[in-house]
Amino acid sequence: MAHTCLRHFLAKLTPQGETVVIPWLEERSLEGFYLPVTSHGANAHPVVVCIAETRRTKEEILSLVLRSARQRGMALLCVDLPDEAPSPRVAAETGITAALDYLIEARGIDPARIAVIGDGSPSSLVTRGIALDGRAAAAVCDGGLWDLWAARQTDACVAALGMVQAGPRLPAMNCPMLVPLRAGEAIEPGHARHLLAQHHPGNRDILLKVFGETSSGPWTLDGYDPILVADFVFDWLGQQLNAGAGEADCIRRLESRL
């Protein structure tokens, strides 16, 4: 019944939202919801890929971000991604590449207008997928924090036993990145900033934002309201994806006169 109601809701949107099947593996595809902003000139609008990983489903993440995205003129592609590898030879994070391939090849979207966000799960799967693919223009994810933090806990235990263990080898992120952290989670904000600075030394476009603290400061947002969090995230995405839009439009107008 819930799926029927959702499909009815998507059909009532203008333009209509769609349930889409995204090619991934020979024996497996990904299901998602694609919500364009307009039927014409879709490539001029940013598209945000929302990955439901372990904490939420694509239906839940859609309900959280839909209002914020449409108010800012951003199209959405919401996709469920399994939290485990579909086979011993294929990592689950390759689903990120499948989603971007779909937008670029089937929808004709410019990669410079595509951002990817995770659902806030305590996992670095989405980060690994974005980093390995390398095409996203902006990302909202953990930046590898959970993998790095878990590895540090393991290293501490191993060191206590007098053993040596190599640290994790994670791909670095090169695009602008917003790292949301909820107050009270296992990773302390100061430690999180230290891990991010160590792992992404060449990327200065990283913002760590702590949500849910009651104290004021540059890294906090009072209270934890999912809608306010979504508004903050999409405002930040708008700044990243629209940064070069005015310059690009100017160049296109000049070229049309030549």
Rank of each mutant, 00 (worst) to 15 (best):
Leu66Met: 10
Arg28Gln: 14
Glu213Val: 01
Lys12His: 11
Gly190Cys: 12
Ala44Gly: 13
Gln71Phe: 08
Asp225Lys: 00
Ala230Lys: 04
Pro226Asn: 08
Phe9Pro: 00
Cys175Gln: 13
Gly202Ser: 15
Gly108Trp: 08
Leu161Pro: 02
Ala52Asp: 09
Ser124Lys: 00
Ala85Leu: 01
Pro201Asp: 12
Trp24Ser: 07
Val49Gln: 06
Gly118Met: 02
Pro168Cys: 08
Glu60Asn: 07
Leu195Lys: 01
Asn242Ala: 14
Ala139Met: 05
Asp249Pro: 00
His200Trp: 10
Val229Phe: 04
Val179Met: 04
Cys157Trp: 04
Asp147Ala: 07
Ala156Ser: 15
Ala115Thr: 08
Asn203Ile: 02
Arg70Leu: 14
Lys58Arg: 13
Val65Leu: 09
Lys12Trp: 00
Glu255His: 12
His45Pro: 00
Thr220His: 15
Leu132Ile: 05
Ser39Ala: 15
Met177Leu: 15
Glu60Met: 04
Ala44Pro: 01
His194Gln: 14
Ile51Thr: 02
Ala106Phe: 04
Leu81Gly: 03
Arg113Lys: 13
Thr94Met: 09
Leu145Thr: 06
Phe9Leu: 11
Thr214Asn: 13
Ser63Ile: 00
Pro15Arg: 00
Asp155Phe: 04
Gly108Leu: 06
Arg169Met: 06
Ala151Glu: 10
Ala139Phe: 09
Glu188Thr: 03
Asn174Cys: 12
Cys78Met: 10
Ala42Trp: 02
Pro218Asp: 15
Pro82Ser: 15
Asp110Tyr: 09
Gly129Tyr: 03
